[in-house]
């Protein structure tokens, strides 16, 4: 299982003090990105590595279970997760592209099911899924993903 959700960050985007601007301290709003993946599995943990490289660009909420999405504010929902079978990062903005399946058991509340449900209920109006490969050059992938995260705000 991945790390526990950071609940306060899950409810609102965090404010970060940016000391690099020329005219003193200024609070900068960061978009919230929900990160999925099992950090103990090499094939499923890469999103956590990418999030670590992008921590100045977003407030990352690491979720062990999609139930954590229930804490997301209604509106834009940005997900970072690994996608099997791709070699380059991928931005999915149409959740119809996700393989939809009916819930069969209580263990089938996967991210795809939850996103489809939240969209159907009007609880998530703008869903953006940043898919990354299972492996690769983390620094290069992070730089490709960075503009998509900025657009999420």
């Amino acid at each position: 299982m991945g790390d526990q959700a950071s609940r306060p960050g899950a409810r609102t985007g965090q404010m970060r003090v940016d000391a690099s601007s020329g005219d003193g301290l200024r609070a900068r709003h960061l978009p919230t990105v929900y990160v999925f993946g099992n950090e103990y599995l090499a094939m499923d943990s890469f999103a956590h590595d990418i999030a670590a490289l992008l921590r100045d660009s977003a407030s990352f909420v690491h979720l062990a279970s999609p139930d954590g999405l229930l804490d997301a504010p209604e509106g834009t929902l940005t997900i970072l997760d690994v996608v099997a079978g791709i070699n380059e990062p991928l931005l999915i903005t149409d959740i119809a592209q996700l393989k939809a399946r009916n819930i069969m058991t209580m263990h089938d509340f996967d991210v795809g099911y939850f996103l489809n449900l939240l969209a159907a209920l009007g609880m998530a109006k703008d869903i953006r899924i940043i898919g990354i490969p299972q492996h690769g050059d983390a620094a290069a992938i992070a730089e490709k993903v960075r503009p998509w995260i900025k657009e999420s705000d």
Partner: peptide
């Protein structure tokens, strides 16, 4: 067939469910 198929007509009920699930999680 599933709750997802119900979502169009039974939004209120499913939101009730999600609300309770969320509090249980908390």
């Amino acid at each position: 067939e599933s709750a997802l198929a119900m979502a169009g007509e039974f939004k209120k009920e499913l939101k009730i469910a999600l609300g309770m699930m969320k509090v249980g999680n908390h």
